[in-house]
Simulated assay, not measured.
Amino acid sequence: MEQKAMEQKVMEQKVTTETGQACLQGLMRTWFEFERQLGRVPVIQRLERGQFTREDYRRLLLNLRQQVVEGARWITRCASSFDRDFADVRSEVIGHAKDEHRDYEILEQDYVAAGGDLAEIQQAQRNAGTEALHAFLMYRASQPNPVDLIGAMWIIEGLGQKMASDWAERVDQATDGDGSYTRFMRYHGENDDDHLDKLYGLIDRVCQSTEAQQSIIRTARVVARLYALQLEEVDHHG
Rank of each mutant, 00 (worst) to 15 (best):
D166A: 13
S142P: 04
G129A: 11
C207D: 01
Y200A: 04
L159Q: 12
A132G: 06
K98M: 11
I203P: 01
D172E: 15
A164S: 15
R221G: 10
S80N: 13
Q25F: 06
K98E: 14
Q21R: 15
V15S: 03
E92S: 10
R77F: 08
R225N: 11
G177L: 11
E190H: 07
I203T: 03
Q125N: 09
T182N: 05
E2K: 09
I75C: 02
A119Q: 14
L62T: 06
E2L: 05
A97Y: 09
N63A: 10
L196N: 05
S215E: 08
Q161E: 13
V69S: 04
I203N: 00
A220R: 00
H195L: 09
S91L: 13
E18D: 07
V206E: 00
T210K: 10
E48H: 15
L199V: 12
D204P: 09
V234N: 02
L202G: 03
I155P: 00
G26S: 08
G115R: 05
E70L: 14
M185G: 05
I75W: 00
T16D: 11
M185Q: 15
E92G: 08
I150P: 00
H195Y: 13
M153Y: 04
E70S: 14
T19C: 09
L118C: 06
W74S: 02
Q66N: 15
R65V: 10
I216C: 04
M11Q: 14
R186C: 09
R84H: 14
V69M: 14
R49E: 14
W74Q: 04
G238S: 07
M163W: 07
N191D: 09
S142L: 05
Q21D: 03
P146C: 04
V15W: 00
G201H: 07
R183Y: 08
N63F: 05
Q45G: 05
L196Y: 14
T130H: 06
D176M: 07
L133R: 00
A124D: 02
Q143C: 08
V10K: 05
W74D: 01
G179R: 11
A97W: 09
E211C: 04
T219K: 01
D85A: 12
Q214W: 06
I75V: 14
G26D: 07
E232Y: 08
Y181V: 03
R46W: 04
E100R: 03
S215M: 06
Q37V: 04
F82T: 05
V234I: 14
I121R: 00
E33H: 15
Q25T: 10
K14H: 09
Q109F: 03
V89R: 03
G238N: 10
E100N: 12
R77V: 05
W167C: 01
R183T: 15
R40V: 04
E169W: 12
M163V: 04
D88F: 08
K14L: 10
V147W: 00
R102S: 06
P146A: 07
G116R: 02
E190A: 12
Q37K: 15
A124C: 10
D197Q: 15
H96Y: 13
A114N: 09
G177C: 11
T16V: 12
A164Y: 02
A79R: 00
L149H: 00
V112F: 05
A128M: 10
M138Y: 05
E105R: 13
K198C: 09
I150H: 01
E48K: 15
A212R: 08
Q67I: 14
I44H: 04
V69N: 02
P42N: 03
E18S: 10
R170S: 05
H134D: 10
I94E: 11
G116P: 07
D88Y: 07
L47W: 02
W154M: 08
H237R: 08
